[in-house]
């Protein structure tokens, strides 16, 4: 009798211990990044441009701007198509074509990020014969697409049908019912989905390796190579210069901060809208 109780206690402690070890890496990594990187983060670091090797100082403005531009372009590609496809799925619900769309979303969802890089390379970089920010955004948009579609569909599926019937009864045409009644009711889920999608792509490096490629200058032309934060961290991290490695830590602080902020926003969003729904 006693032995069973002891086993129970022992295993409970083990579970606590293992769970504790599980979350340790997060703190270890965050503490290390902040310890190494926070010292370098200042106004010049955020607004300056990279300096040649050997000169101290220099900033990562080009990378921050590049990440913003690339993600924004991906956003404008993935959101309309994703929301549209999500509406289609939530309206049709079944049928052969719908099944096919679902399978394709699963395929897109499970495609490794490096493969998306290859695809964007073959579709855009190779025919245009130049690395470009646009090709990187296409790769990221493909990555973001399934998240947007899935969350749109899920949040529109749970809107009660009576809501639509009420609108139809008032003689509102179909497209207006969807745009003015169904979508606003499911907006929280759609926006959350978009935010999750952006935080998924904002830290991605692999699809940009041979598409956006990186650049030490400020570049606003989407058809030319463009810097991005994750790419800069990757390149600096593997460099032999201590100055660059320090800058990579600083960039890591900024990138983590950005992604945590996006996570927080999506959480606040869900909480707030859930109340009003």
């Amino acid at each position: 009798m006693k032995k069973r109780l002891v086993i129970d206690k022992v295993l409970f402690s083990l579970i606590i211990l293992f769970s504790f070890i599980t979350i340790m890496p997060l703190f270890l990594i965050l503490v290390y990044i902040i310890k190494e990187g926070i010292g370098i983060v200042n106004w010049n670091f955020l607004t300056g441009l990279p300096k040649p090797v050997g000169e101290s100082g220099g900033g990562i403005f080009n990378a921050i701007l590049g990440t913003a531009i690339i993600c924004l372009m991906a956003f404008f590609m993935a959101v309309p198509i994703g929301v549209g496809a999500g509406i289609y799925l939530s309206e049709k619900k079944e049928g052969r074509f719908v099944e096919l769309v679902r399978i394709c979303i699963d395929i897109l969802q499970s495609a490794p990020s490096i493969v998306l890089g290859i695809i964007a390379y073959l579709w855009l970089v190779k025919p245009m014969k130049a690395f470009s920010a646009f090709s990187g955004s296409v790769a990221l948009a493909i990555m973001m697409l399934p998240v947007v579609v899935y969350n749109t569909e899920e949040s529109l599926k749970i809107i009660p049908y009576s809501l639509r019937e009420a609108a139809f009864a008032l003689g509102v045409p179909y497209y207006k019912v969807i745009l003015k009644v169904v979508i606003p009711s499911g907006l929280s889920g759609i926006i959350t989905g978009i935010l999750i999608g952006i935080s998924r792509i904002a830290g991605e490096t692999a699809p940009l390796l041979f598409t956006a490629f990186g650049s030490p200058h400020v570049n606003l032309n989407p058809l030319k190579p463009m810097a991005s934060l994750p790419l800069l961290i990757f390149n600096y991290a593997l460099s032999p210069y201590p100055e660059w490695i320090k800058q990579a830590w600083g960039a890591s602080v900024i990138l983590c901060f950005m992604i945590f902020l996006l996570n927080l926003l999506s959480r606040i969003g869900t909480k707030r809208w859930k109340v009003t729904l």
Binding site: I33, G203, F234, A237, A248, S252, L255, I259
Partner: peptide, 8 residues
Amino acid sequence: IPSVIYGF
């Protein structure tokens, strides 16, 4: 956390 930071 981005993959590249885990790697770094």
